[in-house]
Computed example of a mutant assay.
Amino acid sequence: MIEHITTQKAPLPKGHYAQATKANGFVFVSGQLPFTADGNAVLPEGLDAQVRQTLSNLREVLLAAQTSIGKLVSVQIYVSDIETWPRVNELYREFVGDPAPARTVVPCARLHYGAHIEISAIALCGDELSSGI
């Protein structure tokens, strides 16, 4: 069974996609940008604020899917400037903790809306862990 996840606690999609999809024991989170859930299309100023907002959006979508940051298995981070990677990595580490999930970092010349960062992820469903799988 496939379940589409929607939460008002993270920015709603501006295109034809779900915030996340649950299938076969996993949650697939669509790329999250650093916008707030209030629909205000203004990016926070500065790299730190954008990274924190994007990670917060990721957490809210995972919670709506009844899972959490601790159940991440793979994270894809897109950055508009690879020179910012050391700081992004610091903030990411604070947020995710240890052990860290598998991760891919993709430098991009330009991200949608001029954002510094976008993050997509895959996590285990909450019920999968509680059943011993």
Score class of each variant (00 low, 15 high):
G15F: 14
L12V: 12
G126R: 00
G39T: 08
L33A: 11
A102G: 13
C108R: 07
T36Y: 14
W85D: 08
G97A: 08
N24P: 01
K14H: 15
L47Q: 03
N40H: 11
V79H: 05
L124S: 07
F26P: 09
A37W: 06
C108N: 09
D98H: 14
A123E: 00
K22M: 12
V42Y: 11
L124Q: 08
V29S: 07
P86N: 04
V105S: 02
I117R: 04
A123W: 01
F28R: 05
Y78W: 15
R87K: 04
A123M: 01
A18E: 11
V79G: 06
L43V: 01
G46A: 04
I117T: 04
S56W: 10
V61M: 01
R59D: 11
Y113A: 12
S80M: 05
A49S: 00
Q8V: 12
I5G: 03
A65E: 06
A41C: 09
G114V: 02
G97Q: 07
T7C: 03
K9W: 04
R52T: 04
R110W: 10
S130V: 15
V75M: 00
P99V: 14
R52S: 06
H16D: 15
V106K: 13
R87W: 03
E83F: 12
S120K: 02
T36I: 13
I2K: 10
S74G: 13
N89P: 13
S80N: 14
I133S: 13
R110P: 09
C125N: 15
K14S: 15
E118K: 04
H112T: 14
T6E: 14
I133M: 13
